[in-house]
């Protein structure tokens, strides 16, 4: 079971709700993925279009726990105000905290992230910070009161997979008891499986599923990959070695002769 901020989940996938071709495709993808947590955002509401009201009806139908984000915020002040609005709007203390440094890379702005996390944790939020693999930032976030860390695999939407695997492994080793979720940059089910094999607790996905040729089928593929990766981690992986090692017993091999020449 995955335990986050005092709640337990059987699925280890968190699924974003953006970019699907239709509400029905989103609904089917969520259902087949088994995801019990879906991410959402808040945006300016037009008095004429009232877009958000219809979307909220869909989210309520899904019946999943919502994890609102602060996507698009560039300062701690913006992120704090957005989190406070999200708490009232969605009725949850959970916040996926994003403070973005750069619109091209969408990389976390770590100084603002720590500043906002400190304020929000003190206000009683359960802060799930979107961060990098940086160890000192991770320590500061935990010091601020975060009980979960969500390092990126690669820039949001880039589909490049785990571009700094050794650093992610170090983070895992350094924080053995902190739930770690790979958030952003996953492109394929094998990337997700790789993160899970490394002992990461969960994976947060959006674009790789929403923009797939068949998002529903891809959601199923990711669900299986995440489960497979977790099972492999729990089972214990074979250490790679430099030389071959026969899997078939050597003893009793027919025609076997000791090679005295070597």
């Amino acid at each position: 079971m995955l335990e986050l901020c005092g709640a337990r989940f059987s699925s280890r996938m968190l699924l974003g709700t953006a970019g699907y071709s239709s509400p029905d495709v989103l609904r089917q993808a969520v259902e087949i993925s088994g995801a019990e947590i879906v991410t959402v955002s808040l945006r300016r509401e037009s008095a004429r279009a009232r877009t958000g009201q219809g979307f909220w009806a869909l989210i309520e139908q899904l019946g999943r726990r919502v994890l609102p984000n602060t996507a698009g915020c560039h300062t701690a002040k913006e992120a704090i105000a957005t989190a406070e609005m999200a708490r009232e709007l969605f009725g949850t203390n959970w916040i996926k905290l994003e403070v973005i440094a750069n619109d091209d890379t969408l990389q976390p702005e770590l100084f603002g992230l720590v500043e906002a996390a400190t304020v929000l944790c003190a206000e009683g939020f359960d802060v799930l910070p979107y961060t990098t693999e940086d160890l000192s930032a991770a320590e500061r976030l935990i010091g601020a009161g975060c009980s979960v860390l969500m390092p990126w695999a690669a820039p949001i939407g880039s589909a490049r997979g785990l571009i700094n695997k050794p650093a992610l492994q170090t983070l895992r080793a350094y924080f053995p008891d902190t739930p770690l979720i790979v958030d952003a940059g996953i492109g394929t089910p094998s990337h997700a499986a790789e993160a899970m094999e490394m002992g990461y607790d969960a994976v947060l996905l959006n674009t790789a599923i929403a923009k797939a040729g068949d998002p529903v089928k891809m959601a199923e593929g990711f669900a299986k990959a995440i489960e497979a990766g977790r099972l492999a981690y729990e089972a214990g992986l074979l250490e790679p070695r430099d030389m071959a090692f026969p899997s078939t017993p050597v003893a009793g091999t027919p025609f076997f002769k000791i090679d005295h020449a070597s």
Binding site: G16, T17, A18, G19, Y20, L26, T39, V40, S41, L42, R43, R44, E45, R50, T51, G52, Q53, F55, W56, I59, P68, N69, A71, M85, L89, F90, I156, N206, T207
Partner: peptide, 10 residues
């Protein structure tokens, strides 16, 4: 003034 509502998010 900002008035916001739920929306899709990643």
């Amino acid at each position: 003034v900002e008035i916001v509502a739920p929306r899709q998010g990643g």
